[in-house]
Amino acid sequence: MSEHVNDLPEATEHRLEELEHGLFTSDLSVNEFLLVKEAGFHPVGLVMGSSIYHTGIQTRKWSQSQELTKLTEAMYNARELAMTRMEEEAAELGADGVVGVRLDVNYYEWGKDAAEFIAVGTAVKAEDGVSRRNKLGKPFTSDLSGQDFWTLSQTGYAPQGLVMGTCVYHIAHRGLGQTLSSTGQNVELPNFTQALYEARELAMTRMQDESTRLGASGVVGVRLEEKSHQWGSHTIEFLALGTAVTKTAEAVTLTKPMTIISLDN
């Protein structure tokens, strides 16, 4: 299984070898573990990938709203690297997918423009032996919890991959003359509205493109995050994240939840 070429460090290879012999590790809670089993999967190991990335510098025009493509690329590539390394670990374990993926960014004292991008999740494998890998032949990834993973399987959809799109955008400072309109009226500022639309649409569209590449029929659980990282308040990263899903052939009947009153607090 471990014959194909990859760039994983030796210690990682060793750690994964132990996992291939039946031991599993997982950061799932007991409830999540039981629900992953309920969905017909078995956890095979905690997998992770990380990348410490130096983000370049890009000059911003004071009074112009624009995308900072260099920073966008850096943010995207760094996450992509961390994700790919995590996927490689999962592939190494013969997993069909990774659930509960968390993407984090850490900043270190020593590098002003350096940041660590981490992806951590639990690799799972279908118990019926049928491959559940995605269209690209890779293990699927998803940020779904064990509970969500089971619920999704009940709806007849299967995860294909964690998809993301990002856009780092510089929002123009206002010139002196524009600081306050003198009429005493509070008015809409169309330039700002337009800039916000553009930045978020770019992030969303990029996320959808990823989903299309996976041949997915949709994206669920989309989250929109806005972060200024360490760039100051006018430069904002707009990040869209979600799990791409496809409809499986299996017919489903959704059971109606029953009404209960909990007497617990």
């Binding site: 809670s29 409830n31 999540e32 039981l34 629900l35 919890s145 509970q147 989309v222 989250r223 929109l224 209960i260 909990s262």
Partner: peptide, 16 residues
């Protein structure tokens, strides 16, 4: 009942 949820309120539109 035995609940398999980890948190009291897991699902909320505000998670967006």
């Amino acid at each position: 009942v035995v609940s398999l949820d980890d948190a009291e309120v897991l699902f909320d539109a505000a998670n967006l």
